[in-house]
């Protein structure tokens, strides 16, 4: 059982992430019983077989997956995850933004991979709602670092309004 962060709290959760084994045909990849996040290509290859496992098979996306193809399939998935192969690879932020805003995905969106403490705020802003921390990160420390900033200058998925539309910023002045 793994722990994830959701709504500022720790939740336990049974989802596991499946990586395609080297030199394996996505159609031939075995998916053990239980709740699995599978790569998009595995899902495409085995979608019919997965129909019998409703609620058990979610999909994780990498930066190379075609979002237009993905978007057509949302309805069948209980969970979508985006992988951060390395925390410095920022593509996941824009992928998440596009899923939420262009493709109007409204279900659970989870950050997986090299998910570290100091990026969580950004992840929550662009549209992730659950965070599967990198195993080396302390959940306790992570929880303390979800909102390092009191306000946001620019809009994003969490609040599309930039600060100048949110509040009346009087000249030289005080918070309104």
């Amino acid at each position: 059982m793994a722990e994830i962060l959701k709504n500022g709290q720790v939740h336990s959760d049974n989802w596991q992430v499946l990586h395609l084994e080297a030199d394996t045909d996505p159609a031939a990849q075995t998916v053990a019983p239980g709740q699995w996040l599978v790569p998009f290509n595995v899902w495409v290859a085995q979608r019919d077989a997965f129909k019998t496992r409703a609620g058990e098979i979610g999909v994780w996306l990498s930066a190379t997956d075609d979002l237009n193809a993905v978007a057509a399939e949302f309805a069948a998935w209980p969970l979508v995850a985006i992988d951060f192969p390395k925390f410095t690879d920022g593509r996941g932020y824009s992928i998440a933004w596009r899923l939420r805003n262009h493709h109007k995905y409204t279900g659970e969106l989870r950050a997986i991979g090299n998910v570290l403490v100091d990026q969580l705020f950004f992840m929550l802003r662009v549209g992730f709602d659950t965070l599967a921390l990198d195993p080396k990160v302390s959940t306790e420390i992570a929880l303390k670092h979800l909102t390092p900033f009191p306000d946001t200058y620019q809009g994003s998925t969490d609040n599309p309004e930039p600060l100048f539309r949110q509040v009346d910023r009087v000249l030289g002045g005080a918070r309104s």
């Binding site: 932020y93 662009v126 620019q154």
Partner: peptide, 14 residues
């Protein structure tokens, strides 16, 4: 400047 400051999507560009 304000828009780009702590932009959540663009903190880890290529």
């Amino acid at each position: 400047r304000q828009w780009s400051t702590f932009h959540p999507e663009f903190a880890f560009l290529p």
